[in-house]
Design a protein around this nucleic acid. Sequence first.
DNA 1: CCTACCGATCGGTAGG
DNA 2: CCTACCGATCGGTAGG
Lengths: 199, 199
Amino acid sequence: MSGGYLKGRIRRDDIVSAAAAVYGEAGYHASSLREIAKRAGITHAGLLYHFPTKEALLAAVLERRDAEDAAREQLTAAPPGLDVLRRFIALAEHNVRHRGIVEVYSRLAAEAVSEDHPAHAYFARHYREARDSIAQSFHALAETGELRPGVDPDLAALTFIALMDGLQVQWLTTPTQVDTVGSLRLSLQTLLTVPLFPN
Amino acid sequence: MSGGYLKGRIRRDDIVSAAAAVYGEAGYHASSLREIAKRAGITHAGLLYHFPTKEALLAAVLERRDAEDAAREQLTAAPPGLDVLRRFIALAEHNVRHRGIVEVYSRLAAEAVSEDHPAHAYFARHYREARDSIAQSFHALAETGELRPGVDPDLAALTFIALMDGLQVQWLTTPTQVDTVGSLRLSLQTLLTVPLFPN
DNA sequence: CCTACCGATCGGTAGG
DNA sequence: CCTACCGATCGGTAGG
């Protein structure tokens, strides 16, 4: 019955995977529909049958990434507090084992600083949501005395997100010299009065 | 006597300035020699008379940036310690008032994570030198008891550099919501046992 | 989904 | 430094 639709969904998924891989290697603007299509096993005109424009394909890549992240880490599900912070650390640990994911994200984020980039709104929203989520946790920790006195929760949240992103670029550039997870743990622990990972 | 050479140097400088501006807006790969040449008031073939290839122009942009940074902040001149850290903060303050500089740097850094990018070696070296400089200062502070006990100087150096870079991308994306200098001060102060900026 | 094509743009070169 | 050009590549469309 829905055989045709199923095949279409699989094909679309292959294209999105190929696109994410190419974006990671070349960024969005420098990626060509022909290269993406070749990896998906079709022509570039065939790709445009599934995604009407280059931008529509980018949107599909970003949407799938959001869905995957949400499903894997349940970042927003936990109540504000230490657990949320631990889940962000877990996300960083996952990323170290999946360089491709980090490449796409880092490259697109840098391109999207321009207001006219098609992914600009996506990243502006992404940053705001991440900051809000982390800030809520720091505020909760402040109320229970688990945040070091004098630390501003909102500023600490901004700092944590910026640190995650900066570490990723530096890690991609010189992988052997960057301990992403160690740096995140150090920074977080320094802000707390209780152990982040009790022995 | 050297009239011809002087004019050549001025023209070359105009081209480098135009290139830096375009790199900041579009990145390196997406920048065209024709757009850069137009802003410098010549044709793209004329540009190639001064710089033989697109890569040669990129190298000139990076070289000039290094020279300007070194001259302005004398980052390597100070003896390791609090003063070096304060100079990096001063650099961040300067950058907030010169968005264009930050755009070039952030965009190129993200592109250059690829090993085959012509600026890859430049950024790998840049990161290493920055880490070494900061690490030396943290080591010095550790010996005088000005670094919080338990803080690893090398990890703290990596963290500080990553934080600077991550803040810049987030600030470029959502300028009104990011306090770059405040975040850097908070992070540094949290690592120290003495005031970074005594009142 | 493909073949065939379009106009536009790219980095670089020849020749002056 | 310019004019004029090259081959290559781009996103997108027509027509099936």
